[in-house]
């Protein structure tokens, strides 16, 4: 793995009088969570490889407000939103890519009414377009013939009807995409959404992520592919809970592609 990754910030770009093709919105998980940081880096490597002129906000980025909004704290959400929008509008941001479906949903759907209108794409959609345009190529690699099941993130799938981009990417790995019984529109939540990530679950007889992990295990996968840092955490915990971590991995679609390329 090469260690040098190039991550320019908007401020640096601006100082050089340049404006990037796309803003990479890293998100809180992607910035601070140890597991999610690996996804961030894998995605950056792919961006570097495809020579995409991108930039991040760095220390000027702040939580989109999604967990606050879904907890019911509309005040805090709008404060966050308005602050972020001011920053992005000052940089004249046009297009945003993010590896977090929650950030994706919030910026795409809930920011416009507050003055922030951008073209927002999920990183799986962006990677797909890089492949389609020939800016990035994948050749089978280490996932050839492996069984990969894809867990639909609620905020990418049902919330925004993006079902195919991540699947198209997985198919490009020459891997065998095996679907769970509950997939696409009927995808079963990992248990993290609606701010559940930040609290203990309510009383019940099972944790949601265990239920979902069991559904994934039914497909006997070599890899559970995720496309959301929170789903990733939930499924990783689920696999550990089932003591299966020696047999299979939970990986983000961006990591799959970066690893196939052995970046």
């Amino acid at each position: 793995m090469s260690d040098t990754i190039k991550v320019p910030t908007m401020a640096e770009m601006m100082a050089q009088g340049k404006s990037p093709e796309v803003l990479f919105w890293v998100g809180c998980a992607g910035s601070f969570d140890d597991r999610a940081k690996k996804i961030t880096k894998a995605f950056v490597k792919l961006l570097n490889k495809a020579k995409v002129e991108f930039a991040v906000l760095g220390t000027e980025e702040s939580c989109t407000g999604d967990p606050a909004k879904r907890s019911g704290n509309e005040f805090l959400f709008q404060m966050q939103a308005v602050t972020n929008i001011e920053v992005m509008n000052a940089y004249e941001v046009k297009k945003i890519v993010t590896a977090c479906p929650h950030c994706f949903n919030t910026i795409k759907n809930e920011y416009p009414a507050l003055g922030g209108t951008y073209e927002v794409v999920h990183h799986t959609q962006f990677l797909k377009s890089l492949l389609d345009d020939g800016r990035l190529t994948i050749e089978g690699g280490q996932f050839k013939g492996k069984r990969i099941t894809f867990h639909d993130p609620c905020y990418l799938g049902r919330a925004n009807n993006v079902y195919e981009a991540p699947r198209d990417l997985i198919k490009k790995l020459d891997a065998e995409l095996v679907e769970m019984k509950n997939c696409r529109k009927k995808g079963f939540c990992c248990g993290a959404g609606g701010a559940q990530m930040f609290k203990e679950p309510e009383k019940g007889n099972k944790d949601v992520n265990i239920e979902r992990t069991e559904q994934a295990l039914e497909t006997k996968p070599d890899v559970i592919a995720a496309a959301c840092p929170f789903c990733n955490t939930m499924m990783t915990d689920g696999v550990k809970g089932k003591e299966k971590e020696a047999e299979l991995q939970v990986m983000d679609v961006a990591e799959l592609i970066a690893n196939a390329e052995d970046l």
Binding site: R70, C154, R158, A159, K186, G187, F188, C189, G191, A192, G193, G194, Q196, K199, P201, E202, G204, V208
Partner: peptide, 8 residues
């Protein structure tokens, strides 16, 4: 507080 806002 049990809802995950999953839209199912």
């Amino acid at each position: 507080w049990a809802c995950t806002s999953c839209n199912a």
